[in-house]
Design a protein around this nucleic acid. Structure first.
Lengths: 225, 225
DNA sequence: CCAAAAGTGTTTATGATACACCCATGT
DNA sequence: ACATGGGTGTATCATAAACACTTTTGG
């Protein structure tokens, strides 16, 4: 092995797949690129990793710059580094996905993204670089994770109703779930705390509000603890 | 977002956690470092990513250089990039884990690793850099993966007996499994092909040999197909 | 004939699935 | 009073877990 400074050095970036659920649809945050390459195309938010910050710090910093959000669920996804994925130079990107609650009003004016907007994750516009692949992989991983972890709760407000939670799962999984079985399953997991309030929402019976019980729930790679 | 060449560029390496199972023990391939930093310490094999190769190509190239092995099971694990993990300069390492069959005689003379040897994965010597963390994470992931994929088969020779397979699982999981349940489970999965031969191995009844049925079994991230 | 590991079935418990009606509210 | 979505229980099936004896070989 030679010394580190003998070797070509790729640029290293983090890219973020920021998910939320709104109007019964899984959405992803995209920014319109202000410059070449792919000027005018939508892309995943992201940016270069700075000298003295860790990869996760870089991801959190970028996320806050683009959305104003802190303390969101964030998990490393995959590292993409094929030569040629950026036409300018070799760029290795460490991708992360983030889950933000739909009541947290993201999308404040961001520092350098000209325009940022939520798009349906299932049918994104044409994206810059290999970002469609990254997005597709993130969706796949989120679905898988939903099955054996509680990441889903990260997408809802602190208090939520069971029908909301069920719709969230159905949205992400793209499949209908049986109401009774879904509720029994949740009851058996003992993860929910019943709140005293109800939520009235139209011409029908109000729904009970619940909150999620656990404090710290996920390790580095998403296992429940 | 600024242009790529405006930014500090970390060195990018791949590090390999190469597992095998020998004598009922999970083992990992380590190389002794020939130079500073951490000269003389054991470390995971790895090296710098070249200009025109993908990350996975780099990992396979390094693996072949260190062990002479090709066509092994290889999966991206995690990317570690804390500043200070290499005292020389910022190094971002994309870690992979590989599974090699115990009958494939790895460890031919390697190009630049002074010394390479198999060590018990459960109690490795003091390692260079943050390699103990990478190793621990790889072991954890391998265990988890064993539960819902067939990666385990990658560690055995083409023909193997059911007791061998069971011992493999018990070794990696660190727990005893019920013989009858284990065999029934495998039968129900229909993954094994009965071979005509038996293997005699001491003063007891010989065991039937089996081989694994599927050809390509795993996608990018380890799902069975 | 003995030691040693291979091989084999049944019962019980647990979790997953399928399925239909009553309840509380707003208009 | 009716339309709308919230809420509840039981029976069936599939999968997991627990458990003990017989078989084949080498020495």
């Amino acid at each position: 092995m030679k010394y580190a400074y003998d070797h070509p050095r790729p640029a290293v970036t983090v890219d973020l797949v920021v998910f939320t659920v709104r109007d019964g649809e899984l959405r992803v945050l995209l920014v319109r690129r202000a410059m070449e390459p792919f000027q005018g195309r939508w892309a995943l938010p992201g940016g270069f990793v700075r000298e003295r910050e860790s990869l996760e710090e870089a991801a959190r910093r970028e996320l806050e710059e683009e959305t104003g959000l802190r303390d969101v669920y964030l998990e490393q996804l995959f590292t993409f580094g094929d030569p040629g994925r950026d036409p300018r130079t070799r760029v290795v990107t460490v991708s992360y996905y983030a889950l933000v609650r739909s009541d947290e009003r993201p999308l404040r004016a961001s520092t350098d993204a000209a325009e940022a907007a939520w798009h349906a994750a299932a049918r994104p516009p044409k994206l810059a670089f290999d970002h469609e692949r990254i997005l597709a992989y993130a969706v796949e991983r989120l679905r898988a994770k939903l099955g054996y972890t509680t990441v889903g709760f990260q997408l809802l407000p602190r208090k939520f109703t069971l029908p909301e939670l069920q719709r969230l799962y159905e949205t992400i999984l793209g499949a209908a779930l049986d109401k009774r079985n879904f509720r029994r399953k949740l009851r058996s997991l003992k993860l929910l705390k019943e709140e005293p309030e109800m939520r009235s929402d139209g011409a029908h019976r109000p729904a009970r509000l619940y909150s999620f019980r656990l404090r710290r729930i996920l390790t580095l790679d998403g296992q429940i603890v």
